[in-house]
Design a protein around this nucleic acid. Structure first.
Lengths: 340, 340
DNA sequence: CTGAAAGCGCTAACAG
DNA sequence: CTGTTAGCGCTTTCAG
């Protein structure tokens, strides 16, 4: 009788290992998942049989039987913006140490796309869900509720999380940075951010900017709000177009460092002194910010820490521990450097 | 009798849908996977039952029965380097359109870690494997062979792919860029790259650099080869330390744009004219390269195209089409700008 | 500490 | 075009 009996795949199954070790399947399963519940010598025999057969457990079968997939769904707006990678990286690292793997999806900043993705991903029965977005369609909310698994959202400190949320507040950060500029006596301040229609984070940062102006009694000027695609070229272009206005801004708040660094380089090219001719600030404190000329004043956001905490919150819930509070503010910090 | 009978999860199962529509389970399955094989009116009744019950298929069960998971394993060195995100993004986009989802893992540039990850991920029975690395441990090779699924590697144009490979050649790119510098009459050329011990790509770029020098009859100088962590600060530091040498280089080839841009900024700060005082070139043609002062001469690599082709190669094989050749060179391009 | 029986929810293979 | 039967490979539950 061949030791490996599975015809369809040619791979050893748990039954093959069990036979070879002279035990039942469940004992093999225990050696794999609860070795302490098996006698040392039995354990050793089984381990040997596993090695001999080259047995690789089939987690698909295990998941069906146990109703747990050890899989976390992670939906991010895009992978081409490095900030999401920073959070994902930390998330993955922590989850992996606890036996969970990441299922990855790109929602492309579209709530409709997010909804469609979620619907198809739920068929995989993830044990938990991570969303780098807090603004969903009604159908998405329904799907999330019906999934009955822990969910952690990030991207913004939503007041109405589907389940848990860990983030900083984009509104507070936008407001704080604008207040910082106002504190430096800049009055005419422009705002450059992502397209707001489909991006809650962009919206909140801009709302914070407007709130700070309002609070300081500075009249809002819609002409000073620019929407752009993220990138240094786009930052340079936004700056030039803003400074070409009849009443140009004294400061520009770029809601992303890539824009700001591009703008700084444009100033250098044109011989516009920063912050004298125009003050410039960014958002995220990416590595380039500190190196720019002049060094970029920006908002530091704990990207990796958010990923780590998100993983911990999910794991706590998966281990049956309640998570309180379900809304965690990891804050931000204005990093004042030379550009404003 | 309740329409939803599954006690354990409270979720509708295919049986519930079938009963409600007055058909057998297999008909429901067909409506889901081969709707054209079901009569229009039956199809409509089933669709209605699906909506009424809020049925979400269980792909775990489906995978066990069909022996296909519609899952592709993607192992990348890290997510914090944006270049991997660019490839992953394209990979995900194409695969998703064909019903495949991505299982994500970080190998952290360690072959041992890659091996460990692969071993645990194989338990999930991915239908295909994408590796952003071409240099594996013997055990990894064994695991890959036993997985019996299509595999596509990238990161370098390996001559001995485990299965398929789509990439550009780091050796050729390193050599071409060095030849470009030699063609501009720079003789003393330094090379700054990632730590080579665990990084095949870094190694190949450096080998290409050395090959070009050798071919031009320029003596190699080990003191001109620097290993560093990727980032603008590290680029600036490497540059300064190189130019402080007794016999400083006339040109520095940074095997990553982030280093090169940091070095360019350092030159600006110190008033060192580029390329007169020192020529600087990068690698990858990231968005910042074109904006730098002076604009950065660099190597453009088709990151997204690689992800797209990798997906297509996997899909072809999953659809039973043979892929020839199994080694695809997507090339690179030297983008000559002002910095050298 | 170990085992037997009974599924998990779905699809493949064959019928009709 | 639709249905029946028989698993996929594992874990759960309950015994011993």
């Amino acid at each position: 009788m061949p030791l490996i009996t599975n015809r369809s795949t040619g791979r050893a199954r748990m039954q093959d290992v069990a036979r070879r070790a002279g035990v039942s399947m469940i004992t093999v399963s225990r050696v794999l998942h609860n070795p302490e519940k098996v006698a040392a010598d039995t354990r050793e025999r089984v381990a040997q049989a596993i090695r001999a057969t080259g047995y690789v457990p089939n987690l698909v079968a295990g998941s069906l039987a146990s109703n747990r997939t050890y899989t976390i769904l992670a939906l991010v707006p895009t992978l081409t913006n490095p900030v999401f990678g920073q959070t994902l990286h930390a998330l993955e690292e922590v989850l992996r140490r606890h036996g969970y793997h990441l299922l990855l999806g790109n929602s492309g900043n579209s709530p409709q796309e997010e909804e469609a993705l979620l619907a198809t991903f739920l068929a995989r029965r993830p044990d938990g869900i991570f969303l780098h977005n807090t603004s969903h369609t009604p159908a998405t909310h329904r799907l999330l509720a019906r999934a009955r698994v822990p969910i952690v959202e990030t991207g913004d400190l939503s007041r109405t999380p589907a389940d848990m949320v860990v983030s900083y507040s984009n509104f507070a950060a936008g407001k704080a940075m604008t207040a910082y500029l106002l504190g430096k006596s800049y009055r005419r301040i422009a705002f450059v951010g992502a397209v707001q229609r489909m991006n809650e984070r962009a919206r909140q940062r801009c709302r914070g900017y407007q709130a700070a102006l309002r609070q300081a009694g500075v009249p809002l000027d819609a002409a000073l709000i620019v929407e752009a695609t993220l990138g240094p070229r786009q930052g340079a272009e936004a700056l030039v177009s803003l400074l070409a206005r009849r009443r140009p801004p004294q400061a520009v708040f770029f809601a992303g460092d890539a824009w700001a660094v591009g703008a700084l380089l444009e100033c250098e090219r044109r011989g516009w002194p920063v912050p004298q001719r125009v003050a410039i600030v960014g958002f995220d404190d990416q590595a380039m910010a500190a190196e720019a000329i002049p060094p970029l004043t920006t908002v530091r956001v704990p990207r990796a820490e958010i990923g780590r905490r998100a993983a911990e919150m999910l794991l706590d819930r998966l281990h049956g521990k309640p998570v309180v509070p379900r809304r965690e503010d990891l804050g931000f910090r204005i990093v004042a450097r030379g550009s404003a």
